[in-house]
Structure formats: C-alpha cells, structure tokens
C-alpha cells in the first residue's frame, strides 16, 4: 500500500511540476513546455520566435517550481522530525527560532551591508547564518545538566524568537531606507519569486541529504516519540539523538529559509495530514510526507501566482485556505489522537 502510494505521489509530483511550469500568467502548452525542457536538458535547439517562451520556461518557472518542490519536501520532512524530537503536536520547523534568526540575518545584511563577497547571494547567506546562530543560541540556552529536554527546547525557542523579532524591529525602525521593510516582509511571508538556477543546487543538496538522513533515523524517531525513559530502555540515547536531529533540522530549515523565506503551515500540517492517512510509523511518514509536501507546495505556488496575476498572493494565504479546512475535516473524521484524548 505504501509502495503504491509512493509511486502515485512520484507520478503526481512529475505531472504537477510540468503543469506548474506550463501554467501561469502566460500559458504555455504542455507539449511546448516538454519540448523546451527536453531541449534545455539535452542541449537541443529551438526556433528564434520561441526564445521568449523558452526563457519563461527555463529561466523563470523551472527553477521556481523545482524550488517549491524541494522546499515543500524539506519543510514536511523537517516538520515530522521536529514534532517527534520535541514531542509536541504544535511544533513546526520554525519553532526553534530559525525563521526569526534568518530574518535578523537578512535584514542586517540589507541595512548594514557586509558579505559583499557573496554578490547577489549576500542576503541569503546572511539569512542562513542568522538561522544557524539562532538555532545554536536556542540549543545552548535550553541545555542543562540533564541534557536538552523537549519542553525546554520549545519554550526557549519561542522565547528567543520574540527576542530576535524585537531585534529585527529595532534594526528596521532605525534603518534609513524602506528596503529593510520589504526584506522583512519577504522573509516573514515567504516566496519562491527569487528562485534562480544559481541558488537551487545548495538548498536542493541540503534538503535531499536531510530527508535521507531523517528517513534513515526513522526507527529512532519512533522510539523517541515514547519519551526519554522508554528510549533508554530500548537502547536509544535520547539526548544524543535529539542533538543530531537538531543539527539536521536546523541546517535544512536554515537553507530553506535563506532561499524562500519562512513558509508557514506546511511543516506543521503536512506531517499531521500524512500521519492521519498512513499512521504514525516514521518509516512510512518520512517517505510519504516529503512527496506529498512537494506536490502540495508546487500547487500552492502555482495558485498564488495565477489567481490575481500578474500580482502574487502570499503563499501563506493559499496554504491556510487549502490546508485548514482539509486538516480539520480529516482530523474530525478519523478521530486523530496526537496528544491523547
């Protein structure tokens, strides 16, 4: 059943990616899209009058759609891991202060400059650095003699996120121009609009490695979800596993936030949706959730750029519009019980 679902989702993902590349404010026929992609991948030729469409397909939409798929997969997988790691149904990839840290990093670079060596990627690098610094601070602040307990981690993350947001507000408030404000908006709302072929490889590699590593730890996550005492009796050093998970999830989330901002809701809801359908076992969830998340976010991004074209709706509006009713319906129908009765 899982093999069939996996195959179905892989096909759905390929179809979705193709559809999302074809559709948009300028609709390009599927056949032409497929031909352009084929030409781009194999070094084939196209006619002169097709160059504009080719540019749209290959330079603008393809990197954007691929980024949407990568980030959708990454946020979903990381969401699953974070929820198991902190044993909290309300946890998402950003709960550990990553997104607000990234915003501080991005805004700092925008306002104060620096990192000029990275050229057009300076702001992304700043965001990534901010995300990692924030994660490290949360981890160190939550640490005690008994290791890092889940609740301390969540509370510290929430508390420090407020701190980072305050810091960001101060920087924006005293910033001489309005560029800082738009940077903040971009990072807190999230968008795939800035995707380029140049920014794609790093985030893709990080997300793929993270998903594989998390899938490889599936049984450990199963055990961890029963609490540290049980984990010890089943031969899992909960503190060490949590440390490893923290590094994986922080780096992956940091890389995603640096390229596309903090896209909310996906990392919170996709894990639950998938668990409702396939059960709690992480070996299954960590295959289905990334695939489903990728398909979901590709469609969300498509909808966001066609409903009020040529303007774009923020992604969060679409994720909430689609996700909230689906989630509540499924939760009520299946008697979903995360957190007991």
């Amino acid at each position: 059943m899982i093999a069939a679902a996996t195959a179905f989702l892989v096909v759905a993902l390929l179809v979705s990616v193709l559809a999302a590349i074809s559709l948009g404010s300028a609709v390009i026929p599927f056949s032409a899209t497929a031909r352009f992609l084929w030409a781009a991948l194999t070094g084939g030729t196209i006619s002169v009058e097709e160059v504009t469409q080719y540019q749209i397909v290959w330079q603008v939409r393809t990197p954007r759609v691929v980024l949407a798929a990568v980030v959708g997969a990454g946020l979903s997988a990381v969401g699953v891991a974070v929820q198991a790691m902190v044993r909290n149904a309300l946890a998402d990839p950003f709960i550990l202060g990553v997104s607000s840290g990234a915003s501080v990093g991005a805004v700092s670079v925008t306002v104060f400059g620096g990192l000029a060596g990275f050229g057009v990627y300076a702001v992304s690098v700043g965001a990534f650095a901010g995300a990692l610094v924030a994660s490290a601070l949360v981890y160190l602040a939550a640490r005690s003699a008994n290791g890092v307990t889940p609740l301390r981690l969540v509370l510290t993350g929430v508390a420090l996120a407020f701190g980072f947001e305050a810091l960001m507000s101060v920087i924006v408030y005293f910033a001489p121009d309005s560029e800082a404000t738009s940077t903040v908006l971009y990072w807190t709302m999230g968008s795939f609009g800035a995707a380029t072929w140049g920014s794609l490889p790093v985030v893709t590699a990080v997300v793929v490695l993270a998903v594989v590593a998390l899938r490889w730890t599936a049984r450990g996550l199963d055990v961890l979800s029963f609490g540290d005492e049980s984990a010890a009796s089943l031969g899992v050093d909960a503190d060490r596993l949590r440390g490893r998970l923290f590094v994986i999830t922080a780096v992956a989330t940091g890389a995603m936030v640096a390229t596309s901002g903090a896209i909310g809701f996906v990392g919170l809801v996709v894990p639950h949706l998938v668990r409702i359908v396939v059960g709690a076992g992480h070996a299954r969830v960590l295959v289905i959730a990334p695939l489903f998340g990728a398909v979901f976010v590709v469609w969300v991004d498509l909808v966001s750029r066609v409903v009020v074209a040529p303007r774009e709706l923020p992604l969060g509006v679409i994720t909430a519009l689609v996700g909230v009713p689906v989630f509540i319906t499924l939760m009520r129908r299946r008697g979903y019980l995360f957190g007991g009765r």
Binding site: R87, S225, F226, G227, A280, G281, G340
Partner: peptide
C-alpha cells in the same frame, strides 16, 4: 523496562 508515563503521543498500532 516498563517505565512510568511511557505510552507516547503518536497513534501507532499495537503491533507497531
């Protein structure tokens, strides 16, 4: 070991 408060919060099946 059978520890206290160790039933977990995810809905695994009994067999799992």
């Amino acid at each position: 070991a059978l520890t206290q408060n160790s039933s977990g919060e995810l809905d695994f099946t009994v067999a799992e």
